[in-house]
Design a protein around this nucleic acid. Structure first.
Ligand SMILES: [Mn+2]
Ligand SMILES: [Mn+2]
Ligand SMILES: [Mn+2]
Ligand SMILES: [Mn+2]
Lengths: 218, 218
DNA sequence: ACAATTATTTAGACTAATCTAAATTTTTAT
DNA sequence: ATAAAAATTTAGATTAGTCTAAATAATTGT
């Protein structure tokens, strides 16, 4: 059994591992809003428990056991988010903080029943895949709008940033999951993207940063 | 904002206050499965925070603020139990431990939405009243079977003991909430009670202890 | 009334998680 | 190749919650 804090470290290592194979102390400190010295202490403990492989000064990777726990926390986070949006009618920008607490509820049978109650959803309200009870994850082949060329388009299927501010901004521009976008123009000087939503006449412009954080499927 | 542990102390003081006006260190230690010395330390902290009135050697009572927090934890506990039974189809003997964790989820709006989602239930799966969002509690006038005389009866409306073992025992004897019982005989030598359930021919016998822990309404 | 028993608090120690400041190692740039 | 900069770890403290053992206060029984 892990503490709340250990679970958060494992989850964060798991998510950062998607970018780089090995995760560094400073990356963890920045993401977990703590200090490098605190991270080092925790890494020693997690290594002691065989949940990570830790090479001092060089970084850390999850062991199979550590990964299992991390995926399980992610599963709970996303299932609770789905519940909050689909059953309790919260908006997609309101649920993350609540799920940060709910993901640490320990009962395995509870989360499996919740999954069943909702009909085994595949994606959470932000388009992230929900691991099944065995930890299997449907691999998505989504790409960011920033990688589309002019005249290309797709269906908005996910976001890479979950802050309420960003999600509310998307809502204001009608850039919600399921909507169809098409790239009209990419401005040379700052890579900002001009696009249409759902075949509308309206052209909207988003920054390169925003374009990187919106994922579309073909 | 309180810690998990502080909330458990406040909740326990609240529940024990129903029996005696002032709650003692040893009562708390026994209920919270900890040592008297640990309780003393925590009482000092809660008194410092103005959540309890603490007179060393004589016991403790909740302040208005402390009581508000305690009732709120109880509200969350009972609402989550109702959710687990009514929506996720758990049995009444399976939900207490999960609710012990869920009651510490902090979001107020979450618990209010949950309440709305379920149609503002008045009682939890064990017959305990669910405080409303303002902390108001429907007062029940239930009494234990042990206080009935021969030929008297009532509808089972609550239990005073929540252990899975006791709840499963009740289920085996068909002594679930809503069922009608009638006292046939009270044995003189040990006060055990013989009764019928739902007008059945079958006579069942329960100990005085069990009779104290089953509540009926007229 | 006062000795014995019981209840409670205090003293001192431990673990988990965190921090700041100092030391050390690795990386980068000449 | 080596000095400067950046990243990381270590040392030493702190806070929350817990414990055992010892001290003290309250209650009980005669
Ligand atoms: Mn989230
Ligand atoms: Mn999400
Ligand atoms: Mn309960
Ligand atoms: Mn209950």
């Amino acid at each position: 059994m892990q503490t709340f804090t250990e679970e958060n470290y494992l989850k964060t290592i798991y998510k950062l591992s998607a970018e780089d194979a090995s995760v560094t102390t400073n990356q963890l400190a920045a993401t977990l809003q703590t200090k490098a010295a605190s991270v080092t202490d925790m890494l020693k403990k997690l290594a002691e428990k065989k949940l990570i492989d830790y090479v001092p000064y060089y970084g850390v990777t999850l062991t199979e056991i550590g990964k299992k726990i991390a995926v399980d926390v992610v599963r709970k986070h996303r299932l609770w988010e789905y519940f909050l949006v689909e059953k309790l009618k919260f908006k997609w920008d309101e649920v993350h903080e609540m799920a940060e607490e709910l993901e640490h509820i320990s009962s395995v049978v509870l989360v499996d029943r919740l999954d069943q109650f909702m009909g085994y959803p595949a994606y959470d309200p932000h388009g992230d895949p929900i691991p099944d009870k065995h930890g299997r994850i449907k691999q998505q082949e989504f790409k960011p709008i920033s990688q589309l060329n002019v005249a290309e388009g797709g269906v908005i299927s996910g976001v890479r940033e979950h802050s309420p501010a960003f999600l509310q901004y998307l809502e204001k521009l009608n850039l919600m999951l399921g909507n169809q976008v098409k790239v009209i123009e990419i401005l040379a000087y700052d890579q900002s993207v001009v696009l249409t939503v759902n075949q509308s006449e309206n052209r909207i412009s988003i920054s390169k940063e925003a374009a990187k954080n919106i994922l579309v499927s073909a």
